[in-house]
Simulated scan of single mutants.
Amino acid sequence: MKAAYLVVSLLAFASVHVLASDPSPLQDFCVALNESATRGVFVNGKFCKDPMTVTSEDFFFPGFDKPGDTSESPGFFEKSADVNNFPGLNTLGVSLVRYDYAPKSLNPLHTHPRASEVILVVEGTLLVGFVASDQNGNKFFPHVLNKGDLFIFPMGLIHFQLNIGDGNALAFSSFSSQNPGENLIAHAVFGSNPPISPEVLAKTFQVDQKIIDLLEKQFQH
């Protein structure tokens, strides 16, 4: 029953996902080759495999039925199928992620700079939300999602997911890019390489520099 629900869920994503951000392809497909190191730079994509050597295996990605390990902190696990590990997605403008959440675990504040995201809850209950830009008054849009619910995170906006149920939760997200990217807010601000000046951060957040020093210790590697 659960497997059947997963199939229906993924088919629903195919019909719901109409947002697009990547350029439209000019050929049927362009299975990616990782040859940039030997053939120079590339822009907005990857080199293409000879289409005459492409097989159905290039468009196959297994394992989305298997739960991720949420036993260690922070109790959240994501499995991505994007152009970096699924070459058949190259130039097609879509990607998918499986999210597994332990009870009370959090997918922390982050952005996807190159994609809008549609999330579908398969099991459990999530509190989700995103924050609009200052153009829209930094308005916060929260919502509680239950099994079968969809929610959209617009491209580039800060958002999160929190498992507020007593059990595990499972969700799948579809992205309008083959390579949506992910920018974790706390890691980007307090764990940048090289570090952002503590004076800049202290003035930005209007707190004592000792607090900034403590936060940077948490996120610097």
Rank of each mutant, 00 (worst) to 15 (best):
P198W: 09
C30P: 07
D50C: 03
E216D: 11
Q206E: 15
G75H: 08
V54K: 07
G148V: 00
L127R: 09
S56Q: 15
V83I: 11
V8S: 10
P108Q: 00
E57V: 07
V54T: 14
K104V: 11
F153C: 01
F86N: 05
G191F: 04
L109M: 14
L19C: 10
K66R: 10
P195N: 07
N193R: 11
L184V: 14
K46F: 12
F77C: 10
H112D: 11
T55W: 00
D166P: 04
D28N: 15
M155N: 13
D22G: 00
P195L: 10
V189N: 04
F77N: 14
V144I: 12
N146G: 15
F219M: 03
T55M: 01
D22N: 01
N163L: 08
F160R: 14
I158K: 01
D69C: 02
S173N: 15
L215T: 01
K46A: 09
I185N: 01
N84W: 10
P108K: 02
T91V: 13
V144R: 03
F59I: 04
L11K: 15
L170F: 07
F219S: 01
G124M: 05
A81V: 09
H221M: 10
S80R: 10
F47L: 15
S56D: 13
L96A: 02
V41K: 13
I212P: 08
A14P: 03
P154S: 01
G124Q: 04
F61A: 06
T125R: 07
D166Q: 13
G181T: 04
E123C: 00
L19Y: 09
T125W: 02
L184G: 09
D50Q: 03
F77S: 11
F151I: 09
A171Q: 10
Q178V: 13
V83T: 06
L33Y: 06
E123S: 00
S105F: 03
V118E: 14
N163C: 09
L33P: 15
L89S: 07
V18D: 09
V83S: 03
E78Y: 07
F175Y: 02
I164V: 14
L170Q: 04
L157N: 04
H17S: 13
L120H: 12
A171M: 08
G156T: 02
F61M: 11
P62N: 12
H110N: 06
G137C: 10
L106R: 04
C48Q: 05
T125Q: 08
Y99V: 13
G68I: 05
K66W: 03
K217R: 15
Q218W: 11
L106E: 05
D58I: 10
I185Y: 02
S192I: 15
E182C: 09
D149C: 11
E123Y: 00
A32C: 07
P195H: 06
P62C: 09
T204V: 06
V16A: 05
S71L: 13
